[in-house]
Amino acid sequence: MCWYGAEDRALTDRRRDIAVEVKIGVQHAPREIVLESGQSADEVERVVGEALAGKSQLLSLVDEHGRKVLVPADRLAYVEIGESAPRKVGFGTL
């Protein structure tokens, strides 16, 4: 039995269990963009800061399913970054 990569899988599985909710307001758009990202809150904040500072023309984030969300930096109205929270699994009382 080969255990090669077991630590990598464990790290990836742990990372999937933690999601950061990101809400992006876009100028002249009636609805905000909401996504859950596997990136850390600090990482999302860094990417948003770089886009607003003019280092890139696009805000590029990756959601938990690996899809990229691209927003022109000059059209950003606001970005709300939620706290990292473990994903709830199963049924329970509210």
Rank of each mutant, 00 (worst) to 15 (best):
D13I: 06
P86G: 09
D13G: 03
V44A: 13
L11D: 03
T12Y: 05
K55P: 02
T93G: 13
S56Y: 00
S84C: 08
G90R: 09
V71F: 00
V44W: 01
A51K: 02
G54V: 09
S56C: 08
A6T: 14
A53N: 05
S60D: 09
I24V: 11
L59M: 12
P72Q: 02
E64T: 12
V26E: 12
A6F: 10
G90C: 11
V89A: 14
V79A: 08
K88R: 12
A10T: 08
I18T: 12
L61G: 01
L59T: 03
L70I: 01
I18Y: 07
E45R: 13
E45T: 11
S60C: 07
E45N: 13
V89S: 13
A29V: 10
G49Y: 07
E50S: 13
A19N: 06
C2D: 15
A85W: 02
D13T: 11
I18M: 12
D13A: 15
G5Y: 04
L11F: 02
D17N: 09
L59F: 08
P72V: 01
D63G: 08
V26F: 07
A19Y: 00
L35M: 15
V44R: 04
V34R: 13
G82W: 04
L76H: 04
L35W: 06
E80W: 02
S84G: 15
G66R: 05
R31T: 07
H28R: 14
A51F: 06
V22K: 09
K88I: 02
V20D: 09
R31S: 07
G66F: 02
R46S: 14
R14V: 00
L70C: 01
K68F: 14
Y78N: 11
R15T: 02
R31P: 01
D13Y: 07
R87D: 09
L70N: 05
D8M: 05
Q27I: 09
G90F: 05
W3C: 07
E43W: 04
L35T: 08
C2S: 15
Y78S: 13
G49D: 10
V47H: 04
S84Y: 02
G49H: 09
A19V: 08
A19P: 00
R15K: 09
D17M: 06
E83I: 01
Q57A: 15
A6W: 10
G25N: 06
E32N: 00
G25E: 06
R75A: 06
L94E: 14
Q57T: 12
R75E: 06
V71R: 00
G54H: 10
R14S: 09
V26L: 08
P72E: 08
T12M: 06
P72G: 04
Y4H: 14
E45F: 01
R67N: 15
P72A: 13
Y78T: 06
E80H: 09
D13N: 14
V48D: 01
P86T: 05
Y4F: 12
R15D: 03
D8R: 08
R75I: 00
E64S: 13
G54E: 13
V69C: 11
A53I: 01
R31W: 02
R75F: 06
I81P: 11
G92I: 00
R67C: 15
A10L: 11
C2P: 13
S56Q: 14
R75K: 14
G38V: 02
L52V: 11
A6S: 15
G54W: 05
L59H: 03
C2M: 11
V26Q: 11
V20L: 10
G66C: 08
G92M: 04
